[in-house]
């Protein structure tokens, strides 16, 4: 069986003011389909950089990445975009929603591009809004939602198209602990029911509580990688 994600000797350097920063420093790891990984580490350790590389948003300086057995090095921008659209759900750390679209439309946006027909789109989006606890807020624009509500819309958009791989960067950052747990429970359920692979970058212990594998990074290197046992 092919791995959901395969990283081999990934390096990504940033040059800033004459200094070289190792965003990723020879990162090696594999993710099997259906895993639920918590990616943790101090601020600036390279979590976002790694997620961007896996999502094909950023090209590493060296090393290989394969998603679903397809090597990203061989794909051009257009093919990478298609790959993201079809297989990957993204939740970004900071800027997530298109301001001119309502919450429901933001969720539908991906489905629209995938060519899903209108009634199906509406149904899926409404289901999704309910699942993330935003029932009735679907017609609001992002500027009319709180930070946490916006974050939930972003999560809903990332999973509505049933991607095989979800890359989430601090999805619980703006959420109260109750909502955060609800969201993680939703992730866990999707993971169990559909075998969706999750890689969630977070400092949040509640995320670790739901994850089944922990990868800890520091200075662009993986310093810890082990399964998490839950009772």
């Amino acid at each position: 069986m092919t791995n959901a994600v395969h990283c081999h000797q990934l390096c990504r350097k940033f040059h800033q003011g004459g200094q070289t920063i190792h965003g990723l420093d020879h990162v090696d790891f594999d993710v099997a389909a259906g895993e639920f990984i918590c990616l943790t580490g101090p601020s600036g350790s390279g979590k976002t950089t790694l997620l961007n590389a896996i999502g094909g948003l950023d090209r590493p300086d060296s090393g290989d990445i394969a998603v679903g057995g397809v090597s990203l090095n061989t794909l051009d921008q257009g093919a990478l975009a298609d790959l993201r659209l079809a297989h990957i759900g993204f939740v970004f750390q900071s800027y997530n929603l298109i301001p001119v679209l309502s919450a429901r439309e933001n969720i539908e946006f991906i489905l629209l591009m995938q060519g899903v027909d209108a009634t199906e789109r509406h149904r899926l989006a409404d289901d999704m809004l309910r699942e993330v606890g935003l029932e009735g807020l679907g017609s609001r624009r992002p500027s009319e939602l709180s930070g946490g509500q916006q974050q939930r819309v972003a999560v809903a958009r990332a999973i509505v198209s049933r991607p095989t791989l979800v890359l989430a960067d601090e999805p619980t950052a703006n959420l109260d602990s109750h909502t955060a747990e609800q969201l993680m429970a939703l992730f866990a359920e999707l993971n169990l029911r559909h075998g969706t692979t999750f890689i969630v970058a977070s400092h949040d212990p509640r995320v670790q509580h739901f994850a089944r594998r922990l990868i800890r990074m520091q200075d662009g290197k993986i310093i810890e990688d082990h399964p998490l046992a839950h009772d």
Binding site: A81, L83, L85
Partner: peptide
């Protein structure tokens, strides 16, 4: 964001 989401 749109590009990241997969818009060409």
């Amino acid at each position: 964001l749109m590009l990241a989401l997969g818009l060409k």
